Computed example of a mutant assay.
Amino acid sequence: MLKQLCCLALLAGSISTASGAEMLDDTPRTAVMSAFAPEWVALQAAMSDREDFSVNGVTFATGTIEGKPVVLFLTGVSMVNAAMNSQLLLDHFAVKNIVFSGIAGGVNPDRHIGDVIVPTQWGQYLDMILARETAPGEFTPPSFLPHSLPNYGMMFPQDVTVTREGSEPENKFWFAVDPDLLKVAEGVAESISLKDCTPDNACLTTAPKVYVGGNGVSGSAFVDNAEFRSYAFDTFDAQVLDMESAAVAHVAYANNVPFIAFRSLSDLAGGGEGENEMGTFMGLASDNSAAVVEAFIAALPE
């Protein structure tokens, strides 16, 4: 049954602010989000007792996976969509944990398409200064803007400012994954098997695995460039890069909600030969991420 929030209720202010938002479901749940449709098809298939709610055009599906209460939804692609709809989730549902399941570009040259990566922290690496060229090939950012990470040409990464209840605004680059959730992921990684062929029999040359650890970075750009991929690996020790996870980590941190992200490699962000691999392996990567997340949910304590 699809429950629509009435426009008149919106105008009346029943969900006008986070502090006064209408709770649509008070069961404590693990929120499982993905960026776009192929990433959550398998997760929907694993759900029982489904009931849908619609808020601002976003469908939130409640139910159970492996006997655990969950709420599934699509953030939409991009940092802004991810942040906006993550906050929408928290305003209307009782959320115990936030889990992201999706695909990503591989950055670490020792990882392969189909692998599932579970980073320990996430950074917004494309929040940056575009500096002026002060000499041929030399770029200098304004003196009043602090920066500590190596630049890529005119691009100088910056921290982001975060506010949350009971704390002064702080500048951060890394948003840590919840350590307890990470331990559960480590246990799951030891036993799960992953797909290595698509339905069209496009098969991987290396059997995919789950890797827990390292860093992930997110920004509003699809990366298909070998040189920039190398910069991201050398500068941030990034295992993966995507367009949503760090934004969700930011929102989770601001709301004091535990967060973790599972990202399966659909491509090598420009590091492979020929055309970008996402068109071939997007479905396989989505299924691998969903399989690990389903096992992760089953392993969560009651």
Rank of each mutant, 00 (worst) to 15 (best):
A35V: 04
L2W: 08
A185K: 06
M84W: 08
A269E: 00
A61Q: 12
K68L: 05
Y253E: 04
E133S: 10
A83S: 14
G63R: 04
D52S: 14
R263C: 03
R132T: 09
A31P: 09
D180K: 15
L24G: 09
D25K: 10
L268E: 00
P146M: 07
E244Y: 06
A37R: 12
V210D: 07
Q158H: 11
G219A: 12
G63C: 04
N256Y: 06
A295W: 01
T235H: 02
M243V: 01
C7Y: 13
A104K: 04
E170R: 13
W174F: 12
K96T: 14
L43W: 05
A176L: 11
W40L: 12
F259P: 00
G279Y: 07
P199C: 08
V116W: 10
A104Q: 07
A185D: 09
A202G: 05
A232F: 04
I129D: 05
L126I: 11
V212W: 06
N201G: 02
A221L: 12
V293C: 05
P301E: 11
D159Q: 14
E186S: 14
S167Y: 12
Y211P: 00
V160C: 03
D267L: 00
P258A: 02
M155H: 02
H147A: 03
P199A: 10
D287T: 06
A221F: 10
T64V: 13
F228I: 04
D178W: 11
L182Y: 01
S54H: 03
H112P: 02
E294N: 11
A45H: 11
D52F: 05
V210F: 09
G123K: 12
F296K: 03
P301S: 13
A285G: 02
D237F: 02
L300T: 01
S34P: 00
G274D: 06
E51P: 01
I192D: 07
R164A: 02
G270W: 00
E39Q: 08
P157D: 07
F144W: 09
I129E: 10
I297S: 06
V162H: 03
S218T: 15
D127E: 14
F175A: 07
H250S: 00
A18H: 14
S230R: 14
A104Y: 04
A269G: 02
A21I: 08
K68M: 08
T64S: 15
P119N: 12
G153M: 06
G271I: 02
F156I: 03
F60H: 02
P38M: 10
D25V: 10
G166F: 13
D25R: 10
L8Y: 12
T17W: 11
D110I: 01
G102Y: 02
S193P: 02
I98E: 05
S148Q: 13
F73W: 04
L8P: 00
G153Q: 05
P179N: 07
D159K: 14
S218P: 13
L24P: 08
N215D: 11
K3L: 14
F236Y: 14
D196I: 05
F175P: 03
A35S: 14
E165K: 13
E244S: 08
N215A: 15
V77N: 01
A247H: 01
